[in-house]
Design a protein around this nucleic acid. Structure first.
Length: 742
DNA sequence: TTGTTTATTCTTTTT
DNA sequence: GAATAAACAA
């Protein structure tokens, strides 16, 4: 790092960005509209502090919402300031808090190796709690209970804080569930996502010594996406940064889309109230999108009333028109979007720079089908991630139990997987024994507490005891996660039982397990000292988007939420219909409708060069065709800001959009995503696949003439529902039905 | 106790 | 239509 060159010479900043970076009057708030260089300012600020103000990197606390954003910040600071950021406090709120809590676990009655429960684990726990309290799932939905518990925690309210405010039977029951849920978590040495934040806040509030320590340590507190912070997160920022006031937050109220997760848009709108003497900056020059796209996006967000005043502008005047298309149904929508993408790929835009964005994960399916049909490579980001699969969760549960024998949720999960003759009855007996001995299920197994249980289950318990004795010994002996996982897979019989099954599904699972082994090994290579505990924490706190990178040349399919913070040359915004965007579930509440509008705005502002919006007349939902109307957000965009294409009126309109996008011969492209054996089976089958359509008339040799009501599945799994002339309705496997067309 | 069939609810969005 | 839970058979 040369002494005469300043950070400001090495990074290009406009006057507003520069003002924010060099400002030394704290606290500071930056309103950064979409595509205005938010990350650039944040990283420049850190580099500037380190280099110009000679701030020790370890005195900086920088929080983001995704690991991806954190990793990006890290590497950019490293490049800019020419230092290594290893060990620096740059991370997500959750991982930074986990780090503090592991250092201080003893102070709040936890072991440093506490387990982190994800959404799935939370659900299992709340279910067992409700069962214990004898609350019927029909009177209280576990999902709803969990949401309320989460709301309490986000506001840093303990069960005893809630109790006095609880009115009526239902609320009192909820508090009872919360109380029991929380004590079970503690007994099992586990914390859920919300606990990571709220327990840190409790710790810092209660323990003056610890508080002092971290306040001294974190002399600068920086936060990205401040509009997404919830109450506990803003409390944390206030505790850490409030005393010295050196707080720097960046955000955009127009991109607040996590209200449903407790985010308080008020945190950014009234930041100045909490932090007196705040200097406010506004970044309004957009470097991402063309003028046409920006105009369209601005019109969309204009639907909302309450906003911090700002006007985005760009030097990229003109650009291609925004297209709004109407399609007959979702299948047509998918086919045409894919066709359009293929054409554009032929004119030079790489598929990796295109994205299809939708409101719900379920919408990805039609696009996957359409893309697969054309042999085009695609990546689905989010949705059911690798680490959410059953077999992977099972493996992780085993590993968690090795570290933390108090984890009953994990024990429950693997107790009889693979089956060892321990059914519901034996399980209940184990739980009863454990409770009598004041210990956890696994602890009871390890001490042989299952006693003289007769028959099959005794053998099962005994094998579990041996397995875990062995694995725990390995872990204590310093064995790495890869070795422990490998040993567990063979000794538990997990692999054997899958191999025995021999079905395509079991093969797929085995393959996934293999991939997990590879992932652990790879991670271990990158970071040789990686402990089992660290690996598990990494896995639970890492999401699908964190691993996403644009290097693959495949079109990206993801939800609007997932797309935040990303940019693409070409964006297809699909399913812009009332009930979907805005979601029907948010119809009742105006604040929620406004959040849906912001969601659409986020989607529009992802596009750099071209934006294609679409809606359909009919869409398959819940297994039947539902009539749809265009989104109310589209209705208020002036028609001059886009070109409308009606694809329901057959060829004429279609020709028009074809002309708009130059035609190129279809290219055969290889799918980047690895195919599972199951998918290969489908592909092989589809070579000779017979096409069936809804409404098609067919003849069956036993049942006679009939009409196809619905088609489900594809390949060898394709099923047909057929209404026969005698009025009977039958569901048949297409490949066995031997249908003829009359 | 296990594996199969039937009934039910469900879809927002995720660290 | 799909995934899951309860119900049922073996």
């Amino acid at each position: 790092m040369s002494t005469q060159s300043s950070i400001l010479d090495r990074i290009l900043l406009n006057p507003q960005q520069r003002d924010a970076v060099v400002c030394d009057r704290w606290p500071q708030l930056v309103f950064a509209g979409a595509g205005t260089g938010k990350t650039r300012v944040l990283t420049a600020k850190i580099a500037y502090l380190i280099e110009h103000h000679r701030v020790n990197p370890y005195h900086i606390f920088a929080a983001t919402f995704t690991n991806k954003a954190a990793a990006e910040m890290r590497t950019r600071v490293e490049n800019l300031a020419g230092i290594s950021c290893a060990g620096m406090w740059i991370g997500t709120f959750h991982s930074l808090c986990a780090r503090i809590l592991r250092q201080q676990a003893g102070r709040i009655g936890y072991a440093p190796s506490f387990t982190i429960y994800d959404d799935n684990d939370q659900m299992s726990l709340i279910r067992t709690v409700m069962k214990e309290l004898e609350i019927d799932e029909r009177t209280m939905q576990p999902r709803h209970a969990l949401n309320l518990v989460s709301t309490f925690k986000n506001a840093c309210m303990t069960p005893s804080d809630c109790a006095p405010n609880a009115q009526g039977y239902y609320q009192k029951e909820i508090v009872r569930v919360y109380e029991r849920y929380q004590s079970r978590l503690h007994e099992q040495q586990a914390m859920d996502f919300d606990d990571l934040i709220s327990n840190t806040v409790y710790l810092l509030r209660r323990d003056a010594e610890v508080r002092q320590r971290y306040q001294d340590m974190f002399r600068y507190v920086l936060v990205d996406e401040y509009q997404d912070t919830n109450t506990s997160q803003s409390m944390l920022v206030r505790i850490l940064g409030g005393s010295h006031g050196r707080v720097f937050v960046v955000g955009d109220d127009d991109q607040s889309i996590y209200g449903w997760r407790g985010a308080q848009i008020e945190n950014i709108l009234s930041f100045e109230k909490h932090f007196s003497g705040t200097t406010v900056f506004k970044l309004e020059q957009n470097y991402r999108s063309s003028q046409r796209i920006l105009d369209f996006a601005n019109a969309v967000i204009g639907y909302n009333g309450r906003r911090a005043a700002k006007t985005l502008w760009t030097e990229r005047t003109g650009g291609m028109e925004v297209a709004v298309s109407r399609y007959g149904d979702d299948r047509q929508e998918a086919e045409q979007v894919v066709e359009c993408a293929a054409r554009l790929a032929g004119t030079g835009t790489r598929l990796g720079r295109m994205a299809v964005l939708f409101r719900t994960n379920a919408q990805s399916r039609v696009f996957e089908d359409a893309l697969r049909k054309r042999n085009m490579p695609y990546v689905v980001v989010g949705g059911m991630s690798f680490y959410e699969r059953k077999e992977i969760k099972d493996c992780l549960a085993y590993l968690r139990l090795v570290i933390n024998a108090k984890d009953d949720v994990s024990c429950d999960r693997i107790l009889n997987v693979p089956s060892r003759g321990i059914g519901a009855k034996s399980r209940d007996m184990l739980v009863a024994r454990a409770r009598a001995a004041h210990c956890s299920m696994m602890e009871a197994i390890l001490t042989g507490e299952f006693g003289e249980a007769e028959g099959k289950s005794h053998k099962g318990f005994e094998s579990l005891r041996e397995l875990f004795m062995h694995l725990r010994e390995m872990a204590q002996g310093g064995a790495g996660p890869d070795a422990i996982l490998d040993e567990m897979l063979t000794l538990s019989g997990y692999v054997d039982s899958l191999e025995e099954e021999g079905t395509d599904e079991a093969d797929g699972r085995l393959e996934n397990i293999n991939e997990l082994l590879n992932a652990v090994a790879a991670r271990r290579k990158e970071k040789p000292g990686l402990t089992l505990a660290e690996f598990l924490e990494e896995v639970t706190l890492t999401s699908d988007i964190d691993r996403w990178s644009e290097t693959q040349d495949a079109i990206n399919l993801m939800t609007l939420h997932c797309a935040k913070g990303l940019e693409f040359s070409i964006v297809f915004l699909v399913g812009l219909e009332d009930g979907l965007l805005p979601s029907r579930q948010n119809f009742d509440d105006n604040a929620k409708i406004e959040e849906e509008c912001r969601l659409l705005y986020v989607g529009c502002t992802r596009a750099m060069d071209r934006l294609f919006c679409s809606h359909t007349d009919q869409r398959w939902r819940f297994g039947s065709l539902m009539p749809m109307t265009p989104s109310r957000f589209l209705a208020q965009v002036p028609e001059t800001l886009y070109t409308f294409f009606d694809h329901t009126k057959a060829a004429a309109a279609y020709e028009k959009i074809s002309a708009a996008t130059p035609h190129v011969p279809r290219r055969q492209e290889r799918e980047v995503r690895r195919q599972t054996p199951r998918e290969q089976a489908y592909d092989e089958y589809s070579q000779e696949e017979i096409q069936y359509r809804i409404g098609q008339h067919v003849v069956h040799r036993n049942y006679g003439r009939g009409k196809i009501l619905s088609v489900s599945g594809f390949g060898p799994d394709m099923r047909l529902t057929i209404l026969f002339h005698d009025g009977t309705r039958k569901k048949l496997m297409a490949r066995f039905a031997n249908l003829e067309t009359p």
